[in-house]
Structure formats: structure tokens, C-alpha cells
Design a protein around this nucleic acid. Structure first.
Lengths: 321, 321
DNA sequence: CTCTATAATGTTCACGTGAACACATCACCT
DNA sequence: AGGTGATGTGTTCACGTGAACATTATAGAG
């Protein structure tokens, strides 16, 4: 009836609208989102798939998504995929009739195809895959990695190890490629032993350092897959009596606040999470922005920024460890 | 029709059910949650109000809530209240017709009353208020604080400072009361200057230490409002050339993993987040469990556990700083 | 004044579901 | 045979909304 028009901005006499609004406030009337959704076939729900929310980086992502979506009138449904994205969770998410999906954690191929086939508008967040033509927004992982390496190289380091993230994960692969390219372009020590397989967590950095030390690989600096790995590595080095940055320089990736309170404060490449998320959601909610001029899905890489703190130092004369 | 019964567990011939399930799978049919919700007046949505998701502690909360709710068939709607819980956000949350509310961040009085008046089943998570008769689940903040203090006292410390959380916030107040009670019962140095107002973040700890040092308060140990405060404090002390734990012992509260990779690894009281959340949701989803035998809302305090790492040491002879 | 365009309001219906009820079938008991 | 209860299936309706259309009031032009 007229009430609907008054509340949804239809063409209603100003006076009538006033009266209606007043009555609604008095009666505590509130529109029923479920009925609206049923009629309009929408849910105003956006799914967000992340691997975990326990790390500050993902907290930054969730924070930005929550904030941006709220301004657009949408609610956020979080799903943690954990190590792998179980079908049960996929189905649970899809049962909500979500209006869009933000994928921020890698999925198996058939899961990607499922989303594609279900026609859910999807945007990949700091994660890309050739398997499926979804738009992508992320940071310039490779360039950022190269910038990090340039910084270390400029401080005189030649033997730089990389604790890389999980093989096959986009961000990890890209940063690793950046590392390799920098090693090559800058003429640094190129040695398989300097490249260590880790993950994106503390323990990866911790164990990575132990692996380097046990295998007696000489290195004076370390580029970590992210800040958590960097902190785990830093901890391991210090436990082994090595000083950071006097003996080993460390640079991380992410720009988490937690790194600023680490000892020593962590030098890092900051990912522009807020901008990434705001672009991703913009694309998600505006179908016309999904493709570029050529008609292929948009791929957006936002630059990282260098944050100098205190975990990198100029190389002293002697090599160590 | 019969399809509904087949899917929802009604009384249907086994053979018919098989045929229906097969057809549903083939057609990709999925029940419409919005229509169900409209009919049954439910949303299978639980609101979770936290101050922020950027800290690991809140990440642990969200993680536990997400996991527990999923097992119960509910989805989670997160709202970050930030410093204060704006009415706009409250209304945004309520517009979803949520089936329940988990309050984990303090609200203003009228917001509590609003939830009460709106008849949303609400459970307070690590947060209590006399303003409104909601069930409460949290950890034993006061006992945990006393345990922490006992540990420091047992190491010989007599001048123990406390960097307390925001005045008026339940957890902060309780921990502070525990501190004061311990000081009193254990006969420790009782001095207004040893109690410093901070917050629950790094910067609170950082600034708190600076305040102590500037005011030349002598202390040999520090009980921090939570792990983040403890890390901020540790950072500040080390920047000022004081060693942790040799010069100052620090104990935190929360049991976040991040503390384990701090230098030095942080001794702390761990909050049983998973258990807290699982109890809270149990109460939320089972109205009959909301009140105790006397008919008053249930109040549940789960014990903290002591985690010894390396930020506390026995008091040396000389007082410092 | 009449005609027409516009503004404002009223009416009907379908969205997909589950509760309530009606009905059909069948086995079993007396 | 007739009655009884259990089991399985069909029908109707309302939940709250917005699109579409129908209707009425209002204003301006000729």
C-alpha cells in the first residue's frame, strides 16, 4: 500500500509520508527483510570466504568488508575455509541465497566451477586463478616482493633467503616469483637452499629458520612470505642467539600492526587492504564494472607501500650465520 | 506438498523420498531460506557484536562463534561496534530479524534496553551489566588476575604495576579488582601510582609504561590488562633499555598465540574462548537454559589457565627501574 | 468549462514455504 | 464385515512484500 511507497521513496504526498513515518516509529514497525528478499529474490547478503579470522591480516580484511558492505546496505556472512573449503561449508553458504561472493582463500577447482555454475557474482580478493573467469582485486605481490628485495640489496645483502608461502596459493607464488626475479635482476646469490617452503603462519617462519640453520645455509637477510612468518623467523633466530637485524635482516609482507610491536619492529611491505576491499565490493555490486573494455574480467593490482621499521640493517663486513 | 515433507523429515514413503531427493539433486533445487523464514518467522541468523576483529583475541571469538553456529545451522552476522555502538549500526543489525544476539562489547544503557525491549534473545559474552537481566558467560577475570598476581608474588615481586583496561568495561574492571584484591591479600606494595589507566591495545601498554617511567614509579613487575597491552608495554620497556624479564617481569591476559612469538614469549592467563562461546550459544539457542533454578539469568564464569612462557623471572636483589 | 497530464492512492497478485486439515490406503483386531 | 489406527499424500491458506495496474484527486492549458 502507500506505506511501502513512503518507506521506499515512492511518489507520496509529503504530508502523508510524515504521518506514516511517525506511525511506524510509534508502532515499532520495521520492514521484513525476508519478505522483501522473497519478493525481489535478493538477500542483501554477501559471502566472504577466508582461511581464518585469527590473524590480524584477515581481521583487517573482515573489518574493511564489514564496513564497506554496511555502507552499501549489505550484511556479511563469513565462512572460514580452514585448510580446505569443505563442500559442506560451500553448501551451507549457498543455502543463504547470497547476492555475491568474495573469495579470499583458495578453493579446489570444482568449487570454483560450482560458484561459476551457480551464477553467484564472485570477486577474487588477493587470489587469482586461471580456472575460472572471475574479476580479481589484489595487491601487487610480485612488485612488492621485488621492492622488498631491492631494499635488502641496497643494504648490501647478497645472500637473501625466502621463506615462501604454500605452493599453489596465488599470493605465495607471486611473492616467490618476485623474489626469484629480484635475485636474478639484481645478481644476488641464486641457490636452491635459500628458498624454503613454509606457510603463512608463525610456525612456518619458525621452522623455516631452523631448516636453514640445520642445513647450514649461509644467509644475511630474509624475505618472509608475510609478517607472521617474519615474526616466527625472528623468534627462531633470536632463540638461536642471532641478533635481528645485526646478524640477520628480516623483511615481512602485509603491514600488520602486530609487527610494529615485535622486537625488533618489523620492516614490511604494507598491503592496501581497505582499498583492495573497497574496489572488490564496488565491482561485486556493480555488474557493469566486472569486465574491462575488451570484455574480459577485470584484474586490479594495487601497489604496496614500504614501511621501514627496525628489522633491516646494512650488511656488516663478515658474513653470518 | 510431499516434497517439503521429504526434505524436512516428514512422514513419507521411503521410495518416494528417494525419488524426490534424486530429482532435487538433478534440478539443483534448493529450499528458499527467505521463504522459510517468512513463514516461520525466523532467520537462522545470530548477531555478534564485537569492538573490532583486528585483534587475535576477537578473531578467536569470531572463529569459535562461526564454527559453533554452523554446527547448529545458523549463520553469523558480525557487527563491529568500534569505540561506541552507534544507533545506526544497532538498527542495521535489527533490520535482519536476527534470532539471537551475542554481545561481546559494552553498549550504552539505552542500547541494552533496546535489545531487551525488542525481545531478542541475548547473551553477554565476557561482559556483564547490572542494567539488564541477560545471561552471561565469561571467564573468571578476577580469579585469573589474582592467579597472575600470585605468580608474580611467588617470584618475589612486591612492587607490581597494573596497566588496566578502560574504566567501566566489565573485563577491565574485574581484572583490576583482582589486582587490587591480590595486592591487599598478599601484602604487596599498595600505591596509587602503580595502577595506570590504559586500554586493551598495544598503544595502551606502550603509553602506560612511559607514564610509569616519567612519573618515576618504581616497579619490578607488570600485570597487563591483556596480551596486547603486555606486548606494547614490553616494547616500550625494551626501547628504554630495560630487559624483560631480567629488569621487569610482565604477565598478560588472554592467551593469544601472538604472545608466544613475542620477545620474550609472553607469560599469560589463557581465556577458554571456545568453551565460553560454546556455552553462550548453547544458552542462546535453548531458551530453557537461560535461567538458573532460582529463575534469575544464568551467570557462568569459566576458569582461566596459566601459561608459563618467558616474560616473568624471579626478582633479583636490586630494585629496578 | 472541458480536456489532458500528472500526482497521489488503492487493489490485486505471486514470490516459496509449512501448518492445518482433508482424504486415501492399508494392516490389523474384534 | 466393520471398526480402528497408522501411514502416506493432496489441498488450502497466510506469512509481508513490491510490481503492475486501476482508480481518483489536482492542476494547468485551451
Amino acid at each position: 500500500m502507500t506505506v511501502t511507497r513512503a518507506l521506499n521513496g515512492g511518489t507520496v504526498h509529503a504530508e502523508t509520508r510524515q504521518r506514516i513515518l511517525k506511525l511506524c516509529a510509534e508502532m515499532g514497525y520495521r520492514q521484513n527483510r525476508q519478505a522483501q528478499g522473497l519478493r525481489l529474490n535478493r538477500s542483501w547478503l554477501i559471502g566472504l570466504v577466508v582461511s581464518t579470522v585469527k590473524h590480524e591480516f584477515w581481521g583487517r580484511v573482515v573489518d574493511a568488508v564489514e564496513h564497506t558492505l554496511q555502507n552499501a546496505g549489505y550484511h556479511l556472512v563469513i565462512v572460514q575455509s580452514g585448510r580446505y573449503f569443505a563442500w559442506e561449508k560451500v553448501e551451507f553458504l549457498m543455502s543463504r541465497n547470497i547476492d555475491g561472493l568474495l573469495l579470499s582463500s583458495p578453493c579446489k577447482e570444482d568449487v570454483y566451477r560450482h560458484f561459476q555454475q551457480q551464477q553467484v557474482p564472485t570477486v577474487l580478493l588477493n587470489l587469482d586463478t586461471p580456472l575460472v573467469p572471475f574479476p580479481f582485486v589484489g595487491c601487487a605481490n610480485r612488485d612488492g616482493a621485488m621492492d622488498a628485495m631491492r631494499h635488502l640489496a641496497a643494504l648490501g645483502h647478497r645472500r637473501i633467503a625466502h621463506l615462501r608461502g604454500p605452493a599453489g596459493e596465488y599470493a605465495a607464488d607471486e611473492r616467490c616469483l618476485g623474489y626469484l626475479q629480484a635475485v636474478h635482476e639484481l645478481g644476488l646469490a641464486e641457490e636452491p637452499g635459500l628458498l624454503v617452503q613454509a606457510n603463512f603462519h608463525y610456525d612456518g617462519g619458525y621452522r623455516g629458520v631452523h631448516e636453514l640453520l640445520e642445513r647450514r645455509i649461509a644467509f644475511t637477510a630474509l624475505f618472509a612470505a608475510n609478517d607472521y612468518v617474519a615474526m616466527g623467523a625472528s623468534r627462531a633466530l633470536q632463540e638461536q642467539g642471532l641478533r635481528v637485524p645485526e646478524d640477520v635482516s628480516i623483511i615481512g609482507f602485509s603491514g600488520d600492526e602486530v609487527g610494529a610491536y615485535h622486537s625488533p619492529p618489523l620492516t614490511t611491505m604494507k598491503e592496501p587492504v581497505d582499498e583492495m576491499v573497497s574496489h572488490a565490493i564496488d565491482i561485486l555490486l556493480h555488474p557493469e564494472k566486472r569486465n574491462d573494455a575488451q570484455g574480459s574480467p577485470i584484474k586490479l593490482q594495487l601497489p604496496t607501500t614500504f614501511i621501514q621499521r627496525a628489522s633491516c640493517a646494512r650488511l656488516a663486513n663478515q658474513e653470518s650465520p
